[in-house]
Amino acid sequence: MMQHFYVFAFGSTHAAIEAERLLASVKAVVMPTPRVITASCGMSLRLEDEYADEGLRMMKGSGIGSWRYYEMSGSRRDLTSKLLAEAES
């Protein structure tokens, strides 16, 4: 089955937890960082397509630093990631 979703990966677990609270209203799901995304902490947030833009807007205005935003697609066993946006700490 093909999948398509969006992922925020973080430079620190604290940033991830802060973002989780912020993005609860856009139904962010906590997940282990997909294996294809390296160099980030192990906790990521998954957003479905309908909340992708709103989630990014919220993060950009949040002041939370050190995150990257990816578009994920492919099968469950073979996901690829595309970097869409990032914020430095």
Partner: peptide, 14 residues
């Protein structure tokens, strides 16, 4: 506890 709650979410997701 907050980290622990997020870890259990990640575990069940996985």
């Amino acid at each position: 506890p907050v980290l622990g709650r997020n870890l259990i979410r990640m575990a069940i997701y996985t």
